[in-house]
């Protein structure tokens, strides 16, 4: 698999990434969560190599999809930069930890994240509208001027929102950054609920802002993996390119297909991948190559 630039393996990696990313994009999910399991289980790659390759595609997808959110005024860039202090610190910790953690532990962690994603996908129907309760004028969000508004097309007006519990948000983001670096995923599945429950951001704002932050979080570990020479261009190149194109396709697909059946299909895929990862953690392999 690894080694000389093989037209066959480039095409295979490209095809896998484009489909994972298109499927993920169709439900507003990052592809990283699919790329790593596919590369390790079907491509026979070592998990560290898969993580390093995946982190590049996570950066590319975040940057490539940021523009429409920014233009529509949904991304709160002040909240993003404040939380990025915590996500990048978490990512840095993750990079320093990677060598010390055992491979089965990483598989376990990955399985857990997949299960969290599955349960969140089931629950993603709820929508919180901006609340206008009074907050303490001396709290972090007020001091840092994080409160904002976004234009809601459905309501036809601007919705104001207040940001709350920034310290709790920072703590959760540190964890999200750590997981992102360890597993090579964007960990939007962890960022969005953190913003939802801690900061009380409207769901559209948290998705846009999380997506925006993913690039910087992933780049914090990406820069380190790159400097360390962990990123194999023969793998990361086709994976990144496939993911960017897949995300573009996925966004179209999202317009064309209605959610619920796709959502159930996805939950099934996530649970199946989680089961596979758990088996890998326990040293049992059903497919692919021997560990």
């Amino acid at each position: 698999m690894v080694g000389a630039m093989h037209a066959g393996s480039v095409a295979w990696l490209f095809a896998v990434s484009i489909s994972a990313s298109a499927l993920g994009g169709a439900l507003g999910m990052a592809s990283g969560v699919f790329i790593v399991p596919v590369l390790t289980m079907f491509g026979g790659l070592d998990i560290h190599a898969a993580v390093a390759a995946s982190i590049v595609s996570v950066i590319a997808c975040s940057c490539g999809s940021a523009a429409p959110f920014l233009k529509s005024g949904l991304t709160n860039i002040r909240v993003a930069i404040v939380l990025e202090v915590a996500t990048t610190l978490g990512a840095l910790t993750g990079v320093l930890l990677t060598g010390t953690l055992s491979v089965p532990f990483l598989y376990f962690l990955f399985a857990a994240v997949l299960l969290v994603s599955a349960s969140q996908m089931m629950a993603r129907q709820r929508e919180i509208l901006g609340e206008t309760d009074v907050t303490n004028p001396r709290d972090w969000a007020t001091v840092l001027r994080l409160h904002s508004s976004y234009p809601d097309l459905a309501l036809g007006r601007d919705v104001f929102y207040r940001v709350r519990r920034v310290p709790l948000g920072l703590a959760l983001m540190y964890g999200a950054g750590l997981i992102s670096a360890l597993l090579g995923i964007g960990s939007g599945v962890l960022k969005i609920p953190a913003m939802d429950t801690a900061l009380h951001l409207p769901i559209k704002v948290s998705s846009a802002t999380s997506n925006f932050m993913i690039g910087v979080t992933a780049a914090a570990s990406g820069v380190a993996y790159f400097a360390r020479g962990d990123i194999d261009p023969v793998i990361a190149g086709p994976v990144a390119l496939g993911s960017v194109l897949g995300a573009l396709l996925g966004a179209r697909f999202l317009m064309a297909v209605s959610g619920n059946k796709l959502r159930l299909f996805f939950v099934a895929v996530l649970v199946a991948l989680a089961a596979q990862m758990l088996l890998s953690a326990l040293g049992i392999r059903l497919t692919g190559h021997a560990a």
């Binding site: 940021a66 920014l70 005024g73 860039i77 007020t142 994080l146 409160h147 904002s148 508004s149 976004y150």
Partner: peptide, 18 residues
Amino acid sequence: TDLARRPGLDQLLAKVLH
């Protein structure tokens, strides 16, 4: 003045990232 929105910077970042 309390609002975090700043359309100029949003547009610039959108262009650069894209």
